[in-house]
Write a protein that binds this DNA or RNA. Sequence first.
DNA 1: CTGTTAGCGCTTTCAA
DNA 2: TTGAAAGCGCTAACAG
Lengths: 343, 343
Amino acid sequence: MKPTMSDVARAAGVSAMTVSNALTGRRPVSPATRARVERAAADLGYELNLTARHLRAGRTDTVALVVPHFDHPYYGELAARMGRHLADQGRHLVVEQSGARREAELAAVAPARWQLYDGVLLSAVGTTPDDLAGLHTSVPLVLLGEQQMPARYDHVRMDNVAGARLATRHLLATGSRRVAIVGGADPDRDAGMRTARTLGWTMAHTDTGTAPAPELLVRTGPDLSAGRDAVRRLLSDGTDFDAVFAVTDTLAVGVLAALAEAGRRVPDDVQVVGFDNLASSGFTVPALTTVDPGHEQMAVETLRLLDQVVARAASGEADGRSSGPEHVTAPVRLVVRATTRSA
Amino acid sequence: MKPTMSDVARAAGVSAMTVSNALTGRRPVSPATRARVERAAADLGYELNLTARHLRAGRTDTVALVVPHFDHPYYGELAARMGRHLADQGRHLVVEQSGARREAELAAVAPARWQLYDGVLLSAVGTTPDDLAGLHTSVPLVLLGEQQMPARYDHVRMDNVAGARLATRHLLATGSRRVAIVGGADPDRDAGMRTARTLGWTMAHTDTGTAPAPELLVRTGPDLSAGRDAVRRLLSDGTDFDAVFAVTDTLAVGVLAALAEAGRRVPDDVQVVGFDNLASSGFTVPALTTVDPGHEQMAVETLRLLDQVVARAASGEADGRSSGPEHVTAPVRLVVRATTRSA
DNA sequence: CTGTTAGCGCTTTCAA
DNA sequence: TTGAAAGCGCTAACAG
């Protein structure tokens, strides 16, 4: 059997309480006692049991971040950034993967898990507002993502419409007239990221008194290959286009690959803009013009809200009115690189 | 106060034990009782406390994977793959980030955390074999990574030397004579991934009865920009080279960016090979030839070893001789794409 | 500075 | 089928 504090206490000839104090330093212990305790602990190979401490303390000093996929660079970068911030504050971050599945997202924020973590950041893509609104408690939960979300939770998002509008406007301002959107969505379907970015694309056209041709809207999957396939399709359909707004940088990489393979020059024949400003986006050939969604602001705001809601929960408030849930939209910014011409 | 099982029991007019049984289904409960319990639980907004269960059960059904950085695609893909496998088996994976720092890696496998997880997969890059060898217990731990590792733990790695040799041999076989290595290391320094891959590069030359010129070895950081900067330096130094072996695909992306910016054609003027076969590597311009390190085999082997060591720990064996630690090297494979000429 | 008591919330006995 | 008691390992709270 694994040795416990009592075992150490017996071996050192002290009480368990003293062992605890000696090991954690929470209360002063005489040097002699501390030495004896440490000796005994080492001899027995004693190891602290954190589950017991958590049960006792009711806190874990750990925050969980639930993302759809570990291997999507956007989420990897998000997790890394969050992890750095939390580590700076001496807290732990653990990341879980939901596979973008509704059940997995719900399981991750299920009541049962709420004692495991002091708070949960959920990057929701598979759940409906109703799913989340149905949760019957005030969990320390902050929502991230571009879906429609229930109003009762704090929520941080990026300004998708403004970003897409900015991107598309830049394409139109630099001489493009037929701007395809790769990864677009029907505006009347879901209210997710794609829909919002499609709306921005449409609005940019409206701004200049035009309207995009319907055949320029290409629906796709989320992966690199989807971006490539979309452009191949456009090309094989003979659709006329002189610019592509890819709704994510990931898709944009596929778009660039397809254009290169078809011998279309970027930006001379076709301009390209992405969205997300991934770390790798400055290193495509040519370097990708994209929309920065305000990564850092989102991270900072998210953690601020988390602290707020955790404090609210700690202070025993069931559904406190001290400060209602906030809904933050981070500001976007266009990053002009080499896949677009200068104005 | 949050309601507990006793609260539910009182409300339902039964014992806590019956609540537990009714809710978990571990033991049969009469339909009428179950209904009353469920009713009471719902009314009170009862939520299971997992920390208590874990303390009691001594297991968490959760495995932790500790990686240096969430935002390095190699680790993101590794985590995603592990997560999928474990989810298929009904177990949880949580991922932590060590920042590649020695203390963080040690903290992640510190005794204190071992009750939190049924097992830990450590992607070690910051620790020395001695650090890990010093751990004084038989933790369910499987090591991943290309460092030297202490023999007492299971360890899964890729065949770096063979892979680098394969890559370089391909470059030499397709007509290149001056093969630069970007991200190389002095063979007599640490025994990490870079050293191994540098060794493979050297061996490929030896295989053909030549030796690489020292100025073709470029030391770099790990990032995209490091790959770009390495090539810029090579170019500005006037070093003659007609191929680049980048020790990671990430560096290779930077290499391609720098070559494009300098107007060197790939593969006509300069051939390029990477290492890791990231998901995005098929979508560079041109598509990157690279070494696949056997991702899937590594994942499968890792989980096999983990199950083994967890079982060993569960069966109370202190340092069981039933089956010693295994050291597995996954086989590599060259993936030829468009940054190299065909033989 | 150190010890005693009690209990975090759940579940494994053992008994009815 | 249900219950009572005991305890997982740790640490507040209250002595001393």
